[in-house]
Nucleic acid binder design. Structure first.
Lengths: 341, 341
DNA sequence: GTTGGCACTCTGAGCCTGCGAGTGCTACCG
DNA sequence: CGGTAGCACTCGCAGGCTCAGAGTGCCAAC
């Protein structure tokens, strides 16, 4: 066996043992738990080399080694393949998700399920509007001077806004506007909406034009890319379980990050650019202060007409990466299938 | 001064000091920090009596006293009045909430605000549908065999469900059904809907009756009291701050309870029966395993046409009750005002 | 390149001890 | 009879100390 290969095997063994026991792992323990075919002394030499290369560190002089962020990264990159879930697990995912009654319910079930499977914090982003198309816009007068604008997308998502009008509403005008709006906008991707709607107000005159402009503005505002996206979170209690061991300070910063939609959305957005099926960010790679002691594993889901978004799991650096990656991938696949059906 | 009164003053002082320092408070410290007008020896006698009565305990023989659940309860019940917030705080609440664009936004802002003000976990229940009225039902054909049912209430809340139809949809029939449905249902309280809608399908014949029955069923299902309610949570990171001191085991059970809508809804429902402006549940009074080391302070908000619901704050037993109660009450009032306007 | 041996380092558990906070009791005072 | 002062007593906790055990690095030998 190539000695370079063995070193990576040693790294793999260290990561696995450390993940399992959460204690620094020494050379003797390694030879006992894995059959590497060499003696502890040899392992020690390899460990010295791995430490030199920055993959592992010792917390103090006479302790075993612990993987660094870089070590985990190497470990993850070197995983040949993600092991599949058991048949029973896959079946459970499938039936659970199929029983959902609407989009909200699907997402809710998916996020809980993922938290359960990974024993970590699960996050699921709502299907993005950016790639989905508009199905219908509904205008509902509310009292004399308020207009409720309801926007329905091909993903079954519904957004609403209330609009205060300058003058009293004319029912006939509203009806006309509704028709024109739907003719102009229905079936359009949201990204194209801007140009499709721009000319619309010009078709009306006087108060009609004012109203039309206001409604168009409102539709665009509602679909504004910043506001369109939402992430739901579940399983935060899983963080508390290993709190002392895995988070030196407190889980506070992690909880804060998870509550900030903006942070999660940025992170998910960045991970979308990785162009791999299951993306992983480890420790500082998250580029977020509160998440330096955490890792996140995500996968895209959806696609086709259903819009595209990501879901994933957040946990400690010392995470079961293969298992988490498998679960994330599996839930993403089933969710994609459900949304397409 | 009556000696019974003094004992309660002593209790109050113990609670205040313990909340401030999180350390058991002794007789000497009490006389120094509060001007009770008596010597430590007298305090000791009072403490012995308070301990006898079950209001306080000592963690171990030679330590100060700590309030029991019962002690906190007595303390809270005896608070003559809730101190108001500062003008600046009230103004901040007011302007923050007024800038909200829709119901979701109002609730979102309110829950974050409350978490911020109390430095605890804030919970806000969506305005209940039970007392609100139906404003409009919209039917939107989606493809040939799916019908999207959108239900809009007077509180501005929007619920939706997708319905799969037996045969292909007839646009004219849908339009007719929409009109009839709105005539029959609009303005009705949700509790009365059942009787208002029951006769509706009989007005139609053949496939129309089938469709009408399905739609009515769907409307009723959607508004089914179990599904109608939702609670949003913010500020969980505040739990982590004092984790070690205030939660002997871990904050895990608390986080679990907060993620379970069912638990929160039951608790809020029970607290609604207390018939007081600001209700408090302390430790075991929550009747929930995971919350034995937590307290919750809630207040109703809304009312009139806006539906009625509760909001509140969850924190450790060792909580600033007066401050939390003031903040909860203030946010409830402003929220009520915003929703009515 | 691998291995066995060995001296060395360092942490963490366990034990001890003295300090200080806080109590309860008793005798005394107004 | 309630309040006070003094005092002996209890007990947790911080700090210091030791010791065993785990783990390392290095060196000489294979």
């Amino acid at each position: 066996m190539n000695s370079e290969d063995r070193r990576l095997d040693v790294l793999r063994a260290i990561v696995e043992d450390y993940v399992a026991t959460s204690e620094p792992v020494g050379s003797r323990a390694l030879t006992e738990r894995h059959h590497l075919g060499v003696s502890p002394a040899t392992i020690r030499n390899d460990m010295a080399a791995l430490e030199e290369a920055g993959y592992i560190v010792q917390p103090h002089t006479s302790a075993g080694r612990v993987p660094t962020d870089m070590g985990y990264r190497r470990f993850v990159d070197r995983l040949a393949e993600v092991k599949p879930l058991s048949l029973a697990e896959r079946r459970a995912i499938s039936t659970l998700l199929e029983d959902a009654v609407d989009l909200d319910d699907v997402i809710d079930r998916a996020v809980r399920l993922l938290a359960q499977l990974t024993q970590q914090v699960a996050v699921v982003q709502y299907p993005s509007l950016r790639r989905s198309a508009l199905r219908h816009v509904e205008l509902v007068p509310v009292g004399a001077r308020h207009l409720l604008v309801v926007i329905i997308t091909t993903t079954g998502r519904v957004e609403q806004r209330t609009l205060e009008t300058a003058g009293d509403l004319d029912e006939a005008l509203v009806a006309q506007l509704r028709v024109r709006l739907n003719v102009a906008a229905a079936g359009r991707r949201l990204a194209e909406l801007d140009s499709a709607l721009r000319a619309l107000p010009d078709e009306f005159t006087g108060p009609g034009a004012v109203l039309a402009r206001a409604v168009v503005q409102e539709v665009e505002d509602t679909l504004d890319l910043d506001r369109e996206e939402r992430v739901v979170v579940a399983g935060t209690a899983n963080l508390a379980r290993t709190a002392g061991a895995d988070f030196t300070r407190s889980i506070g910063p992690v909880l804060e990050a998870l509550e900030e939609q903006v942070v999660l959305l940025r992170l998910l957005g960045e991970m979308a650019e990785d162009q791999v099926a299951v993306a992983v960010r480890i420790g500082r790679e998250t580029q977020h202060e509160g998440l330096v002691e955490a890792s996140i594993v995500t996968s895209p889901y959806g696609g086709q007409g259903a819009g595209i978004a990501r879901l994933g799991a957040v946990g400690p650096l010392r995470m079961d990466y293969p298992g988490t990656m498998a679960a994330v991938r599996a839930v993403a696949r089933y969710l994609t299938r459900i949304l397409a059906g």
